[in-house]
Amino acid sequence: MQIFVKGLTGKTTTLEVEPSDTIENVKAKIQDKTGLPPDQQRLIFAGKQLEDGRTLSDYNIQKESTLHIVWR
């Protein structure tokens, strides 16, 4: 499925993911596209910070959802 990651600059990155992907895995995909290391990424969805060990489905993140990224 496709999801979007929007940064503070307003730039949006598209990712191809599975609902079973962990947040850690998603951060690795973001690094592949942007070069930003996972330890500098904070992902937010529906006002919650996403924890590395959880999956996208744990947070009810579905296709075409938009996550927000904040740099540490």
Rank of each mutant, 00 (worst) to 15 (best):
4 F>I: 06
16 E>V: 13
57 S>G: 11
39 D>T: 10
56 L>S: 00
54 R>C: 08
33 K>N: 06
29 K>S: 04
54 R>I: 05
4 F>Q: 05
42 R>I: 15
27 K>I: 03
2 Q>W: 09
11 K>R: 10
5 V>T: 03
64 E>I: 03
21 D>Q: 04
46 A>C: 07
46 A>T: 05
4 F>K: 07
8 L>T: 08
68 H>M: 11
40 Q>H: 12
63 K>Y: 07
11 K>N: 12
37 P>F: 07
54 R>P: 04
60 N>A: 07
36 L>Y: 11
43 L>G: 00
40 Q>F: 11
11 K>M: 13
9 T>S: 13
30 I>G: 01
72 R>A: 14
10 G>W: 06
59 Y>H: 03
67 L>P: 00
7 G>Y: 14
35 G>N: 05
50 L>M: 06
39 D>C: 09
23 I>S: 01
14 T>I: 14
22 T>P: 04
66 T>K: 04
23 I>N: 01
23 I>R: 00
70 V>E: 13
38 P>W: 13
44 I>Y: 15
45 F>G: 02
33 K>I: 13
22 T>D: 03
44 I>E: 10
19 P>N: 05
40 Q>N: 11
48 K>G: 05
69 I>E: 03
29 K>I: 06
18 E>P: 03
39 D>I: 09
4 F>N: 05
57 S>L: 10
43 L>N: 00
18 E>A: 12
50 L>T: 02
35 G>Y: 03
69 I>Y: 05
55 T>Y: 05
11 K>Q: 12
66 T>N: 04
41 Q>I: 15
45 F>K: 02
33 K>G: 04
45 F>T: 02
36 L>K: 05
32 D>A: 14
52 D>G: 07
10 G>M: 08
57 S>E: 12
10 G>N: 08
49 Q>N: 10
55 T>P: 04
66 T>E: 07
60 N>R: 06
13 T>I: 15
49 Q>P: 11
41 Q>L: 15
69 I>K: 01
1 M>P: 01
49 Q>K: 09
11 K>W: 15
22 T>I: 05
62 Q>L: 10
51 E>N: 06
72 R>G: 13
41 Q>W: 15
69 I>V: 12
17 V>E: 00
30 I>D: 00
13 T>N: 06
58 D>A: 05
54 R>S: 08
71 W>Q: 12
53 G>D: 12
31 Q>R: 14
13 T>Y: 15
36 L>S: 04
22 T>A: 05
64 E>L: 11
51 E>T: 05
45 F>A: 03
49 Q>A: 12
12 T>H: 08
19 P>Q: 08
35 G>D: 04
71 W>N: 11
4 F>L: 06
23 I>L: 04
6 K>T: 13
43 L>T: 01
1 M>F: 15
60 N>F: 08
38 P>C: 06
21 D>I: 05
2 Q>V: 14
1 M>R: 02
44 I>S: 08
23 I>V: 09
8 L>Q: 09
61 I>A: 01
9 T>E: 11
34 T>M: 13
25 N>Y: 10
42 R>T: 14
21 D>V: 04
54 R>N: 09
71 W>H: 14
45 F>N: 02
54 R>W: 11
1 M>S: 02
24 E>R: 14
33 K>R: 09
12 T>C: 10
6 K>H: 14
68 H>T: 12
37 P>D: 07
36 L>M: 12
1 M>K: 02
72 R>W: 13
